[in-house]
Design a protein around this nucleic acid. Structure first.
Lengths: 360, 360
DNA sequence: TTCTTCCATGCAATCGATTGCATTCTTCCG
DNA sequence: CGGAAGAATGCAATCGATTGCATGGAAGAA
């Protein structure tokens, strides 16, 4: 796009190279040879190093384009020990919450010139560990992750701290590891959901919670208990179940609750999948939602809005969490030293009231 | 940091190395030096090259473990020009169909020792192109992709063919490029959906279709038309709409159909999202589904089963498609030459009948 | 015992780009 | 006009692993 004219030291060069399909790759040395200059100059020019004169830069870029030069990023990564790639590990990519987080990460990462490599652990420790090793082996510059439900050993993550590769956790965080953490306000989510049910006049509010080795589920439950206590209701162990929050687990849990001597009149489910299972179970058993049993879920999965009755739930700011996580990670990547203090950032949750919890 | 004792060629070696956190990485040369052997032997041993005696191999592996050796995969990739990574580009990772395909790909890839790097184009050409360049720059061994709706130029994919990097398309394939293609039987899907509606006694069957630059949507529509003709019904242009199949587009389309002089008594939607929009619109306008208007969607998204009424739809074998794609890709990667004939593999689709299309 | 054969290991080049330092060429100032 | 400062470019080492070929040694054959 620039046309420059010179005299002495004429740079009016045009490489007459035919781009051959799939033959030996053009390297900076080929360009150097063609232009009769050194490879270092070519390298610097292509990286817009100001040491190289504008004229030479242009000449080199032009030749590079004509010769079909494609930088060998692997070689550069090898030399510089940087890959400009950030790895993301999530339990499942098709959960709306996680894919929102990923979109947030990508937004920031691309803007800052980082590529994003996404992997899913399928909530399986083994696979998570494999992925961690693979990301490590490929020398990603940093990792953002939400651990699998089954993960309780963190050996595989030590890889990263050993080599000072920054790590940012989100959602399902690990207390034992010192790193930035981005979480939704699960406590408040649990609290809001439960208080809402109380405000609807419910008295026997059960909870179907998640694995208690995960902080997020502890917190959701703590919010639930606090709300109950605040309202002078006694938390009842028989009303609190724990499982892996799958469709099947949910069905089992709700069935157990509904077949007990004392039935709940409301259930706070620690995720929307469980809320959905519950609603389907209740419908099949002719128990009216919300009249007989009110339901609140968690996460605001897209289906929550469209099932009948639509599901009241807690919305988490996934996209923002992803952006925040990427920002923090990239900041760490760029300033080489490890911060001496890692915050845990809590992002607000919000109650969305729909049909499943409100009797008109 | 190291105190080592040997006699000549002693195999009773124990490296007493303190694994230092984040210090200079251990390389095969360090191991070689510690054991007083050559780096080539170390390299071969670690790769289980049978040229190296079992005894030496064991000794080296033990030392490697003790010294906290982590192979520098980037260096190896650079040298071997192979990354054992396959790139996957999908429009959106949180579509059930795509994430099923991804799971299928992963299943095969991991088994064969390949890592999988997933990216989403957000149905955006620019981003797809960026991703393609990034995957190419990082020298993935092969790519599996389903192109973005907006993509109509294929320059960015030439990168791969130029350098003989195998490509496998699935679902949204590109005719212009010679490569293996895995598609669901969209024609038959459209045909089955429409025939089903006809069997339900519907006469005025509309269709909300997708962008006609994509073969899959052409085929779904062709199936629809064939079924109509077979039944002696005349396809009617006023009954065939096209859009991008988003929630919003769907609402617009169904509203247009329902506000026309002649209303359809059934709608075949080219995806489930549109079917959902339609159902919601119809519900809000007090039009009974399926009594007044029957609906069939496409893809069998998870929500299709749980909304009320549940959505009849066409199921595509995503997981199997992913497996197949990965198999074909990896086969190409392993046998260096390009096959001279690329098949297009069509996988069967299946009609799932639910409430939205059957009046009892 | 001597020569051949094969097994195990070592040597050294190589992949392509980057970068600290040295060198050359300009330009400007006294 | 000489010299110094600064601008532009080149030299060569380097990153860590792989690999074709050479070599040393042991075992087997004669």
């Amino acid at each position: 796009m620039q046309s420059i004219a010179w005299k002495k030291n004429n740079l009016n060069f045009t490489a007459k190279i035919i781009r051959m399909s799939n033959q030996p790759e053009t390297t900076i040395h080929d360009i150097a040879k063609a232009l009769n200059i050194s490879a270092s100059t070519v390298s610097r020019a292509l990286n817009d190093n100001p040491l190289i004169s504008q004229a030479t830069r242009n000449k080199i870029k032009k030749a590079a384009a004509e010769m079909g030069y494609r930088p060998n990023v692997v070689a550069a990564n090898f030399r510089t020990k940087r890959t400009n790639t950030i790895g993301v590990i999530v339990p499942l990519i098709n959960r709306h919450f996680f894919s929102s987080v990923i979109s947030g990460i990508e937004e920031v990462a691309y803007e800052q010139g980082f590529a994003v490599s996404i992997s899913q652990s399928n909530d399986n420790f083994e696979k998570e560990s494999k992925i961690a090793h693979s990301l490590f082996a490929n020398r990603v510059d940093g990792v953002i992750l939400s651990i699998a439900m089954g993960t309780s050993s963190y050996e595989h993550l030590k890889l990263f701290s050993e080599r000072q590769i920054p790590l940012v956790f989100f959602d399902r965080v690990v207390d034992e590891i010192n790193a930035y953490k981005i979480v939704a306000d699960d406590f408040r989510g649990g609290y809001l959901a439960t208080r809402h049910l109380i405000e609807q006049g419910r008295k026997r509010i059960a909870m179907i919670g998640g694995p208690q080795n995960l902080r997020i589920y502890q917190n959701r439950q703590a919010g639930y208990i606090t709300a109950l206590q605040e309202a002078g209701l006694q938390p009842d162990d028989a009303f609190i179940l724990h499982n892996s929050l799958t469709r099947k687990d949910g069905t089992q849990a709700i069935s157990k609750l509904m077949n007990a001597a004392i039935r709940p009149d409301a259930v706070f489910c620690a995720n929307d999948t469980t809320a959905l299972s519950s609603i389907i179970y209740l419908r099949e058993n002719n128990i009216k939602v919300p009249e007989e049993v009110a339901i609140v879920g968690f996460s605001n999965e897209p289906f929550a809005e469209v099932v009948t009755p639509s599901i009241s739930t807690i919305k988490q700011p996934g996209f923002e969490m992803g952006k925040k996580a990427a920002e923090l990670l990239i900041r760490q990547i760029n300033q080489k030293e490890t911060p001496d203090y890692f915050e845990t950032i809590t992002m607000p949750t919000e109650l969305i009231v729909r049909e499943s919890s409100v009797s008109k």
